[in-house]
Design a protein around this nucleic acid. Structure first.
Lengths: 334, 334
DNA sequence: CCTTGTTGACGTAACGTTAATTCAAAATAG
DNA sequence: CTATTTTGAATTAACGTTACGTCAACAAGG
């Protein structure tokens, strides 16, 4: 392929001029006529800049990495969109990695650790990145931003506590008194549970212990089964993770529990799929798209050495999306 | 950060030796003692190779791009896994792009088109990449492999026709006579419909016209509603795309149609979610993981200038995953 | 003893860019 | 008409690697 040297030769100018035309540099000035001559030569030779040479020279790759603990989780789709969009606005491309492929010594990690791969790193891992990996990343020369609560790095996250509170308060307002919180594990889920607790306390209700059955569909099914074995069955549940709601629906169906008539369900996080389930699932939408955008902005602040905004995003707030899986309690059961 | 030069200075050797140690080059030989001395210096200085400089020198980035028309589609999850895994085995990292962000002039495309970004490109677009973009990609210096049927590029794909046939034959074997094919659009869906046709013909049944309502949940719901408006309602349907099955289930629920008792449903493609729906959806699993791996291998054949395997993957075959959404027809309805 | 081969390393020219420096010619000022 | 500034461009030194070519020192073979 043609290089700047070829273009320079074809246009009868020096390398410097071609570079100036490509980058619009003001330092090297030129007549408009030479500029168009260079432009023509570029077109004729189908010149494409060499990104690698550029990166080497500038010590900047215009690429950022985003590592997710579970790329497949549909909850991350809007996060990814936000990140891709904001990155593009910064002229950058996103290198997407799954935490699963980030074991110590893995291809992806080795790549990240080497110099000149990315300008910065975004991580959302829910603690899935083991200490070895974090230690290796610690003395990475480029900035790292964590998209969840973190101790040793700059971080930014959505308001999980608030989400738990919103979901719970909604159920309380529907006259439910016996509400349980099901699913999840780790800091993030604890926050949501804390929000649940807070709402329960505020209403003078006693919160049930956290049934931390984990993530995914099965976790929801397991959680519901455990819950229903208790002496007094709840009339409503807050599901820690939206995908677990699918499992809750399935288990309820298998146990012959009618939703929402016998049991109201509210999930935290929202995905398009929930609209299409029967019953359609009421959920608390988290501003994941906004988190993605804010994350990229904060990362570029770090890259530029500017002070970077961090902490919990309180605006926009988590937003209740009311569908059919939760209904007002008419008949008190205990 | 430390460079090879720093390491060389620290170890009291030349640059060439350090490079040889890093790459295990045989041309430049050295005593074991100097090798370990260099290794120690590398460790002490926390030397990390500069990927950019390496890429420039070798004209090879150890990175491949994969462009999907809808990154969010869970059907692509195993494809992505296959690609990531096989790429890692080739020492490469994957740059994931969504066809949505691949409009002409977009950040991602510009990046791809410039030299020295990737060693090769994998595309699965279902025709979503417009002609402009394809034209721009056409004279890309690096190999491009299409992960579906293509005319102007090397391609490789799963056996969609066979999948349609398998789904339909299964329903026929369950004594269904009145079977319709719903959803999809484009070449790929036509192939599946063709398989449906073939199975119907083989059984002496008359195939219904293709209700090409598109992809996604809504497409399934729309398809079912249209189908049910017909004079003689079918007893079974083949759903072109698995996510549309979710919509079919929802619409059936809304219309008061019991699945599988009144209507049997088989979807093409399989995702984990289907196990967790009620009824759990019977589906034809496509070897997407294998397609991902095969795609990467074929791409690396192209990169190496070797002859590359292409065409339809017939081994493994699409595989029927029997769950609860299809059942034998006991009572003939028309 | 000289020749040839082997070991262990060093020097250096690229790869394609960018940006600082330099410089001739033209334009303007005095 | 000379002195100074501005314009328009050319030269060149990096950026960090890799791989080719070279070469001294030493060993082995005749």
């Amino acid at each position: 392929m043609a290089t700047q040297r070829d273009v320079a030769r074809a246009a009868g100018v020096s390398l410097a001029v071609v570079s100036a035309v490509v980058n619009g540099t003001s330092h090297t000035r030129m007549k408009e006529s030479t500029r168009t001559r260079v432009l023509q030569a570029m077109q004729q030779l189908n010149y494409q800049p060499n990104q690698t040479a550029r990166s080497l020279r500038l010590n900047q790759t215009d690429m950022i990495a985003m590592i997710l603990n579970k790329l497949d989780n549909p909850v991350y789709a809007p996060l990814r969109h936000g990140v891709y969009e904001a990155a593009a606005e910064h002229g950058a491309t996103v290198l997407l990695g799954d935490a699963e492929t980030m074991r110590s010594g893995s291809q992806f990690l080795t790549r990240l650790l080497s110099q000149g791969t990315v300008d910065g790193i975004l991580i959302r891992g829910e603690g899935l990145l083991d200490d070895d990996v974090m230690a290796e990343l610690r003395d990475h020369p480029k900035p790292i931003l964590i998209l969840e609560h973190a101790l040793e790095h700059p971080w930014i996250d959505v308001d999980d506590l608030r989400a738990g509170e919103i979901a719970t308060r909604f159920l309380i307002n529907l006259s439910h008194r016996h509400i349980v919180f099901v699913g999840g594990s780790g800091y993030l889920s604890q926050q949501r549970y804390l929000g649940y607790q807070r709402a329960m306390d505020a209403a003078g209700l006693t919160p049930a212990p956290h049934l931390a059955t984990g993530f995914g569909e099965q976790a929801g099914a397991d959680g519901l089964r455990q819950t229903m074995q208790a002496a007094t069955a709840p009339t409503a549940i807050v599901v820690n993770n939206i995908m677990s709601a699918v499992g809750v629906l399935a288990a309820a169906h298998d146990l012959g529990i009618a939703i929402p008539d016998q049991l109201s369900v509210v999930g935290i996080h929202d995905v398009d799929l929930m609209r299409h389930l029967r019953p359609a699932v009421t959920a608390v939408r988290m501003p994941m798209y906004e988190l993605g955008r804010a994350g990229v902005e904060a990362l570029y602040d770090l890259i530029a050495g500017r002070p970077s905004a961090g902490g919990v995003i309180t605006d926009p707030e988590p937003e209740l999306v009311i569908r059919d899986s939760a209904t007002a309690l008419t008949r008190v059961r205990d």
